[in-house]
Structure formats: structure tokens, C-alpha cells
Amino acid sequence: MNDRLVDKQISLEARDLSISYGEKQVIQQVNMKISSHQVTAVIGPSGCGKSTLLRTINRMNDFIPTFSMEGEIIFQGRNIYGPYSDPGVIRQKIGMVFQRPNPFPKSIYKNVIWGPKINGYTGDLQELAEDALKRAALWEEVKDRLNESALRLSGGQQQRLCIARAIAMNPDVILMDEPCSALDPSATARIEDLIKELRDNYTIVIVTHNMQQAARISDQTAFLYEGDLIEYGVTKKIFTQPDKKKTEDYITGRFG
């Protein structure tokens, strides 16, 4: 299937990736190329390993003591898990938005600039904050109260703030782990529109349990089942004429 991706520039590539927590293997031998400036959705039933796969990409699984992996994840020509690779630097280039909005209990402004600030950004922080908030489609709502606590924003606004926080780092890739699962439908719609816009500047990998969402916003879709990458390809094709029976059963709701 991967030949369909050949004409696109590749941003990330998993090679023979297997992941275990202790004795339990949760991802088996996944090979996957993720194209730049595309939205790639990872779908599959709960517990299929899609969040684990996502968190491995920016080394957020390093915090889990039982985590171990084999294979490689190649980003900008280098293995993310190579001996000289620094998780901090990787996370600056591969940002992440989580299931539940998790702004810091600081002001809206400080939430956006904290990342760049600790990583030695030397430009104009004010400008950076405004730009990031505009890109996250939050600027108009918060421009008059940048010094208010971020915790006073609504859930949807908080999640867009978390996206702004990720954008402010000027990453190449933004990983999103079910970013709408804690939001109501109208907030979800806003985030989905935003994701489609962000594609122009960033590579987006989004994990979702919501198939309609994957169909609406993604260019490529990967279907994971019990740690195996069952099928991966252009979203339209996956949802209309999947190659594998398992994929068809899942997207038609025969299991989930």
C-alpha cells in the first residue's frame, strides 16, 4: 500500500516497530510512512495500541518504566531512539495534544510562551503568542484577557490553547491523542476545522476512536487491530473499498 505515498515527502517512518509493556507486547512489527503536511489518522478499537504508537513517536512512553521497544522510528533521517538522540529536542520538534485539555494553571499568555521560553527562544514572545493563538483560532476570543488564568476557559478553548501551546514551539509534527474526546460536538467541530487548516504548515498524526472524525479530517488512515497494522492508505479508499475484511468489519461497525 505504501507505494501510494511515494510521491509525498515522508516526515516520519516506523521500521519494524514492536512495543512492549513488561512481558506484554502491544505493537507488533509495524511499518509505516507518514507524509509531511498531511493529516494521518490512526483508528482502531480501544486497547489496539494506537495511543501507545502515538506516544512512542515523541518518546512520551519513556516515563513508563516497563516500556520497551524494538525497531526504529526515523525522523529527519535519524532514529528517534538512537544513542545520541535527546528526548527534549525531539519533543520540541514533535509536539503533542492530549485527550483532555491540560493547560498549566498559569495565564493564557504564559501557557503559550512557556515552551519557547524554557527552550531559549530569543524573538519577541508577545508576537509569538499572538501568532500561535491566531493559528489555533483562539486569538479573537482571548486577546483581551491574555493575563487571565487558562483554567477559566471552556474545555474547547482550553484544547485550542493546548494546540496554540504546541504551535508556539514551531514543531514539524503535531501528535494528537483523541483531542476531542472530552469536548462537546460544537467544540469538536471547531477543532476539526482547525486541524484541516494546520495541515498546510504541520504534519499531523491524530489518534481517534471516532471513525467519522477520521473520515472527515484525514488524508491517510491507518487501521490498527490488537497491535497489528491491518491496513494503511488513503482515507477515502479505506472507508469506501478497504482491501482487508477486518477493516471493512470495523468501519461498518461489525465490531468495535
Binding site: 515523541n58 527534549g88 509536539g95 512557556w114 515552551g115 524554557i118
Partner: peptide, 25 residues
């Protein structure tokens, strides 16, 4: 834990997370 994750995901070091996020929070 999501607070720590949010900070680490921005490339923060353990020390920055402890002093600038955990302590003030």
C-alpha cells in the same frame, strides 16, 4: 499527571517541570 505530560511534551527538562510547573501549581 497530564500536567507533567503537557510540560514534558514541550521539551521541558525534569528540573523545569518540577520548579516551573509542579511547584507553582
Amino acid at each position: 499527571g497530564s500536567l507533567r505530560e503537557g510540560a514534558y511534551a514541550l521539551g521541558a527538562t525534569q528540573f523545569e517541570v518540577a520548579v516551573q510547573v509542579i511547584l507553582p501549581s
